[in-house]
Design a binder for these strands. Structure first.
Lengths: 94, 94
DNA sequence: TTGACAGGCAAGCGTCAGCTTGCGTATCAT
DNA sequence: ATGATACGCAAGCTGACGCTTGCCTGTCAA
């Protein structure tokens, strides 16, 4: 759970999650391309790869290998309990 | 919004939020005392003060001065939109 | 088989976050 | 007034993070 908070702390990793939500099952190069196009992020391939490792370690991204390609899938399950941690006990804060 | 993610990335700041949810309106020394007691965190007063500054800059903590004391109040409003960013509608990026 | 493609591993570097330390300021009790 | 209390400000240090660089492995097409 600690890794989830650290994973979403980085704006580049949040953009990766945005991209996977918009189009699930992308490969590393696809993510790199679309990050530069749509989000204006000009990081190297290795940088994005390391970000994906962090996201995968946090359980926010699940991967599947197929030949040379490694497809990345979004998993929002760890995010469900984040906001609920402080918002559930005290009722609904607007 | 970027500061909110960074604020909750630190485990000590998350413990501060837990403490304020459990008992709202504490002063700095109260927070320091209860952090060491209940959460086993042995940070100095200045360290906690700097954490509170980060939380206040993120809008997660609202303060009120009364004489020598500065009372800290929890505000969960910025947290509401965090998990919803990836779990709800697609295309709502900030 | 050869070369291009997709991705991984590991060392090194610059920067920033978190913490400490020391001193300063404002408020309150005695 | 004087000391104690509650907190703020700012410089310095250290470790971690994000990124680059270089080289390597594995896969597929021609």
């Amino acid at each position: 759970m600690d890794e989830v908070f650290r994973a979403i702390a980085d704006p580049t990793r949040r953009a990766v999650l945005d991209e996977l939500v918009d189009r699930d099952g992308q490969s590393l190069f696809e993510i790199c391309t679309r990050l530069t196009m749509k989000h204006g992020i000009s990081s190297s391939r290795q940088a994005i790869s390391q970000h994906l490792d962090v996201l995968e370690a946090a359980g926010l991204v699940v991967t599947r290998r197929d030949g040379r390609f490694k497809f990345h899938y979004f998993n929002g399950a760890p995010l469900a309990a984040i906001a609920q941690r402080w918002l559930q006990a005290k009722g609904n804060n607007s």
